[in-house]
Simulated scan of single mutants.
Amino acid sequence: MSPEQNAPADPRDLDLALRLADLADAITLPRFRASDLRVTRKPDRTPVTDADTAAEDAIRAALGHERPQDPILGEERGGDVEVRGRGWVVDPIDGTKNFSRGVPAWATLIALVVDGVPTVGVVSAPALHRRWWGSAGAGAWARDLPSGTPRRIAVSGVESVGDAYVSTTDTDTFRSEPGPVGRDGWLALTEACWESRAFGDFWQHVLVAEGVIDVAVEPVANPWDLAAPAAVVAEAGGRLTDLAGHPTYAGGHALTSNGLLHDGVLEVLGG
């Protein structure tokens, strides 16, 4: 994804997305580490909490009032976003496993997608006291919560894979899940790069946008995991594609980079 693909976003849509993030934070943060937090399992064995459903329901209600014509795709309540036109893609809590275990690395992800391209993205991580956002034509930004000063962010200038800092979510996923990149490809990349970590989920993608790390590899991901980070990364000057190099947030997997490293990383992953 690159900013050149997108016409400038309407600033009113970014304002709405930021207000939706405020709404979600007010619901999720009080439930984080709550003694009565209710956790159940979905059919795919991933956890869902009462905070997930409450946050998504609140976001949907607000969008229904302010953008009644826009479809919504959310992790907990489903839906669909057409290839043409506008739609919102929402993950009320990305990193629910962390949330349910008391690990503060989780966030609400809110994106506006226009004609298949994320044009507005907000990633709000209140337990980390951090928020990131990007809007087509207006750059990528971050600030500390609750009231820090916004700071424009940009990807790193690292040009060599051998100097790159790379992250994933769970290294075992390369072995246990079918996909275009297996365990051998991931190990080859970690050996080729300077340093590897597992920051995971949304966090690694926005860290790429901030220039803190250079590459993030996600072997399994849903559209709601990637739409908002894709907008932030693009406006920060980076790229998000699937692991075959196609510029999509809906390919089932993802590679995020500073752009300079993208083709070289794909080559290493592909063997």
Results as ranks from 00 to 15, higher is better:
Ala24Val: 01
Thr173Gly: 03
Glu191Gln: 14
Gly200Cys: 07
Ala26Leu: 07
Thr168His: 04
Asp242Tyr: 08
His205Lys: 08
Ser100Asn: 09
Leu128Ala: 14
Gly162Arg: 06
Ala51Asp: 00
Glu56Met: 13
Glu218Phe: 00
Leu261Gln: 06
Ile110Glu: 12
Gly271Ala: 15
Gly121Arg: 03
Gly87His: 06
Gly252Tyr: 08
Pro118Phe: 09
Leu16Lys: 00
Val161Gln: 05
Phe199Cys: 09
Ile72Thr: 11
Ala198Lys: 02
Ala221Phe: 00
Ala227Lys: 04
Pro92Trp: 04
Ser257Met: 08
Asp36Trp: 03
Ala142Glu: 15
Trp186His: 10
Asp57Phe: 06
Val123Cys: 14
Gly148Thr: 06
His262Met: 12
Ala228Thr: 01
Trp194His: 12
Phe174Thr: 02
Gly157Phe: 08
Ser196Val: 02
Thr108Glu: 12
Thr248Tyr: 01
Asp80Gly: 08
His205Gly: 14
Arg86Tyr: 09
Val123Tyr: 09
Val212Leu: 14
Cys193Arg: 00
Ala138Glu: 10
Ala55His: 06
Ala164Gly: 07
Val81Lys: 03
Asp242Lys: 03
Cys193Ala: 15
Glu267Leu: 11
Thr28Asn: 10
Leu23Arg: 12
Leu63Arg: 03
Val212Ala: 15
Ile27Val: 14
Leu266Tyr: 05
Gly134Asp: 12
Ala250Met: 01
Ser100Asp: 08
Trp141Pro: 09
Arg130Ser: 15
Leu255Asn: 02
Thr96Arg: 14
Asp22Ile: 03
Ala164Cys: 06
Ala34Asp: 08
Val158Leu: 05
Thr53Ala: 15
Pro68Asn: 13
Asp44Lys: 11
Gly78Ser: 13
Asp36Leu: 09
Leu18Glu: 11
Ala209Leu: 07
Arg239Lys: 09
Glu159Gly: 14
Val212Met: 12
Ala7Gly: 07
Ala107Trp: 02
Arg239Gly: 00
Ala51Tyr: 00
Ala54Thr: 02
Gly179Val: 08
Asp50Phe: 02
Thr169Glu: 04
Arg60Ser: 10
Ala227Leu: 07
Val206Pro: 03
Leu16Gln: 03
Leu29Val: 01
Asp163Arg: 02
Leu16Pro: 06
Thr241Tyr: 09
Leu269Thr: 03
Arg183Leu: 15
Pro219Ser: 11
Gly251Asn: 04
Val83Phe: 12
Gly102Ser: 13
Leu14Ala: 11
Ser100Met: 05
Val212Arg: 12
Asp242Arg: 01
Thr256Pro: 00
Gly85Arg: 11
Leu112Thr: 01
His246Thr: 06
Ile153Gln: 07
Thr168Glu: 08
Asp170Tyr: 10
Leu16Tyr: 09
Gly259Arg: 04
Val217Asn: 07
Val215Leu: 11
Leu240Lys: 01
Gly238Phe: 09
Val232Phe: 07
Gln5Cys: 07
Gly116Gln: 04
Pro43Val: 10
Arg86Pro: 06
Ala107His: 05
Val265Lys: 02
Pro8Ser: 13
Ser35Pro: 02
Ala51Gly: 08
Arg151Asn: 10
Ala54Pro: 00
Thr40Ser: 15
Arg31Phe: 07
Asp15Cys: 05
Arg77Met: 06
Val158Cys: 11
Val90Thr: 04
Arg60Leu: 14
Ala7Arg: 11
Thr28Ile: 13
Ala21His: 01
Pro68Asp: 15
Glu4His: 11
Asp57Cys: 11
Asp163Val: 01
Asp22Arg: 05
Thr149Trp: 10
Asp184Trp: 06
